[in-house]
């Protein structure tokens, strides 16, 4: 399985993402610049955190019109796993691959600390290696991670089991303590916490590694075992 780490001008978690996949997960991975017009050779797409295009206008707003996002949307429609972390999540929201929007943190402060997350849904391709209700420690680092959606959307998220991670102690004021959601089909995950920064005990936690392992396992079951 081969991953692409999409790099926008202003991305700054791309190296962490690359390291997590290559060195800790042990899978193939390549950096892909934002003007790329083809992602056919990749099986999984990773949108890293940072400040794409300087966060101009709104976080993630400018990135939605980059060449590569047309390809990311295509990959998502084909059913390929797409993971957006932090600014990557914001880009997925702005692109419309995920419902809702981000507001400034309730405290107006940039928050950078480990957070306890509850794994709410273990049937997604991103979470099969976790136990339902498992509490994991994953760091957050954001100023705009206060997830918002209207009541109807929230009901849909719940009805379709799209809420994957929630905060135990909500740091930013997000609706229903939401930390991460998938699309209806379940192949696109956006989350504010950084699993790529929790892949080694040296970093304080390796709870994020299972997320990447889940993706590979699901992909192997679907494409390798089936052949």
């Amino acid at each position: 399985m081969k991953f692409a780490v999409i790099v926008f001008p202003g991305s700054n978690c791309d190296t962490d993402m690359y390291h997590a996949v290559k060195d800790e997960l042990g899978a193939e991975v390549e950096y892909v610049w934002h003007d790329a017009t083809n992602l056919n050779q990749f099986d999984g797409i990773l949108l890293p955190g940072g400040f794409s295009y300087g966060d101009y206008l709104r976080s993630g707003a400018i990135a939605q019109f980059s060449n590569v996002m047309t390809e990311v949307v295509k990959a998502a429609r084909e059913g390929k796993p797409v993971l957006g972390v932090c600014n990557g999540f914001q880009i997925l929201l702005e692109t419309g691959l995920l419902p809702g929007a981000m507001r400034r943190n309730e405290s107006l402060k940039f928050i950078c600390q480990p957070e306890e997350l509850v794994v709410e849904n273990t049937s997604t391709i991103f979470t099969t290696q976790y136990e339902k209700g498992e509490v994991i420690s994953v760091p957050v680092a954001h100023g705009e991670g206060n997830y918002y959606c209207d009541k109807d959307t929230l009901q849909q998220l719940k009805a379709n089991n799209q809420i994957v991670f929630t905060y135990r102690n909500n740091p930013n004021g997000s609706v229903e303590n939401i930390a991460g959601i998938t699309n209806e089909e379940g192949n696109v995950l956006g989350m504010m916490p950084h699993p790529e920064r929790a892949v080694d005990e040296l970093l304080g936690s390796k709870d994020g590694l299972k997320l990447f392992q889940s993706i590979v396992k699901s992909w192997r079951e679907r494409y390798v075992a089936a052949k």
């Binding site: 206008l57 709104r58 707003a61 939605q64 019109f65 929201l93 702005e94 419902p99 809702g100 929007a101 507001r103 918002y148 959606c149 209207d150």
Partner: peptide, 8 residues
């Protein structure tokens, strides 16, 4: 489509 985000 760009200048505002209709969700918020």
């Amino acid at each position: 489509k760009l200048l505002s985000n209709p969700v918020i």
